[in-house]
Design a protein around this nucleic acid. Sequence first.
DNA 1: CCGCTCATGTAACTGGTTACATGATTTA
DNA 2: TAAATCATGTAACCAGTTACATGAGCGG
Lengths: 187, 187
Amino acid sequence: MSPDHARPSLRLSELEGVVMGLIWADGPCTAYSVRRTVQQSLSPQWSGSAGAVYPAVARLEQRGLLQSTDQATGKRRSRALDLTPRGTRVLQAWVGPPVDPAAVGIPADPLRVRLRFLELLDPAGRQAFLRESIDGVEATVRQVLEEVRLLKRNGASPFEIAMVRGVLHATRARLKMLRELEAALHE
Amino acid sequence: MSPDHARPSLRLSELEGVVMGLIWADGPCTAYSVRRTVQQSLSPQWSGSAGAVYPAVARLEQRGLLQSTDQATGKRRSRALDLTPRGTRVLQAWVGPPVDPAAVGIPADPLRVRLRFLELLDPAGRQAFLRESIDGVEATVRQVLEEVRLLKRNGASPFEIAMVRGVLHATRARLKMLRELEAALHE
DNA sequence: CCGCTCATGTAACTGGTTACATGATTTA
DNA sequence: TAAATCATGTAACCAGTTACATGAGCGG
């Protein structure tokens, strides 16, 4: 009767959830391909290192959430991963509802944190900080715009589109924050 | 000659940076008050647990970035923390410029990640997910709006205002993402 | 005097990080 | 044939987490 997020046996770390999700999305696939996807993802919140992905896969397999079948061709070993029925249910519970309160809460933004302490710098330093970060974030906007175009052309699902557009909105929000401060400092 | 972020002796973890920044902002203060501030901050990215803050302070003091003076009154012990000159320089370097590329990059958003995998749920589940998260994020918007009003009334610095308005923009961006998907699914 | 807040810390654990290590297959 | 890519993993480390532990001072 207790809510799902209170049952320890069902809990997944953020990375574990992503790994499971990617395996669900890409059909049976190798840990290596999951790793590559994580590495190439737009938001570099994880390194996608072998030291994170392989142990995560091993944990999930031990918990009976993933199953693997040997795909070795010749002498090259390869294991194809897939969700078990239980794994699918646990992943669904991880996504929600009920939505994890921590997921709904305000996400971290290292740039915003630095902005908070920008008064530490002299005016030239503040200016340089804002220039640099605005340039960087503008570059990201262009990159994400390209990504959206690409996804739409490839007939991506509305869920994929929504996620990438979410990145776009979030990035523009950061730009707005930076420009507002720039304007406020120029008064 | 190498850039600051390449010199390991200068590197600060995100939490260490925040701890230093709060000590700078609040003048000499105790680790306890830093901890409380972290706990009460809008974005709950850290627990603000004693097990994180006290070891961080100890590390920073050992590295000569913080100094402490005894503030004990009677038998109650209390240490007031302050930045050393070197600590101030390291904190300035942490803020940037040059801005840490990881700080400029797209920040993580657990809600966005879950959205990506929403197709896993049946239509009713998707609907419930969107309802719940939209409600939650809308509540956050109202809360942050109130926070902005409060800060402005208290004559906060443009930097503090910019940060909280940044939270506001970011939260509205999430709302936009959720509503876009909701609309797309209703077609 | 009981419970709350101030104030400091430790201990066990966890899930990431970087770096290392191995070997097959493919491509330039 | 050399370099890149596919594919698997391990080892040392690190900075967080929760939970525990102690004790002073203060207000009802």
